[in-house]
Design a protein around this nucleic acid. Structure first.
Length: 257
DNA sequence: ATGGTCGTTTGACGA
């Protein structure tokens, strides 16, 4: 199974490139973030023409997450399952694909450490953690993937000395990833690559992509059984090149499932 | 040099 997470930064703006990428890379499960589409606007038919089912939790001009699969798409669930008030945004969708319980997540950005949105980000991650603990076992086949808006450690940012006390690198955010890890979900990319400077997002401004100024914030958090079955993980930088790219590149995992 | 670019949109705001 080839499983992918990709923040497309508007599926409307990216549909042609996304479909071309599907045909080229032949993924089995693709978790999309920032569709920026209302529920009824999702291009299910275009993906169906390529042989994929799709499920979308849409909002409108912001956010929006989806799972596109050609290995089954069962037990779809939008949002959190804790019975509390729905999230104010469309940021998480679950489905079972090829026997793996998959979540596509768009974790809040946080904006700045003194912004209310940062507290929302931390609370959102707590809610994800509670959902896992309530509804799943770490011994299950699980992939919680998406744009986490957190760089796990200093290898994952272009300027670790400059990017201190800001969102994406703060200790409180990294602690949430540590809690996920303690429960049983780990960043599978780091089981296959040790080096610094491998990123998944680059700001559009000032040619940052070409200057190799980015961050690795798109993560595949896998349970132990899936990690053991993962043969390779890579960032497809080619998808960040050329005309009208997303500011994120897809992260791809090949799993013997 | 305190901006720079895209996306949503048609005036800003979010990332």
């Amino acid at each position: 199974m080839r499983l992918v997470t990709w923040n497309v930064n508007s599926l409307n703006a990216r549909l042609e490139r996304a479909l071309e990428w599907f045909e080229l890379m032949q993924p089995d499960v693709v978790c999309l973030q920032e569709t920026k589409l209302a529920a009824e606007e999702f291009p299910h038919a275009e993906f169906a023409e390529l042989g994929y089912e799709s499920a979308h939790h849409g909002q409108g001009q912001w956010n929006g997450v989806a799972i596109v699969s050609r290995v089954g798409l069962d037990d779809v669930h939008n949002d959190f399952g804790d019975g509390a008030d729905p999230d104010v945004d469309a940021r998480i969708i679950w489905a079972t694909c090829g026997g793996v319980r998959v979540a596509s997540c768009y974790v809040p950005n946080g904006r700045s450490l003194d912004d209310d949105h940062y507290q929302y980000k931390l609370a959102w991650l707590d809610r994800l953690q509670n959902d896992l603990e309530a509804n799943l076992s770490a011994s299950d086949d699980i992939c919680v993937v998406g744009d986490f808006n957190i760089a796990p450690d200093d290898r994952d940012v272009w300027d670790p000395k400059g990017l201190v006390g800001v969102t994406h690198t703060s200790q409180s955010e990294r602690d949430k990833l540590a809690t996920l890890k303690a429960w049983g979900l780990e960043d599978v990319f780091r089981e296959h690559h040790d080096e610094a400077g491998l990123y998944s997002w680059w700001d559009y401004r000032d040619g940052n992509f070409h200057k190799r100024k980015g961050m690795r914030i798109d993560l595949i958090m896998s349970s132990a059984s899936v990690r053991a079955a993962t043969e390779r993980v890579f960032v497809d930088r080619n998808a960040r090149k050329g005309k009208l790219p997303s500011d994120h590149a897809p992260v791809v995992a090949d799993i013997t499932r």
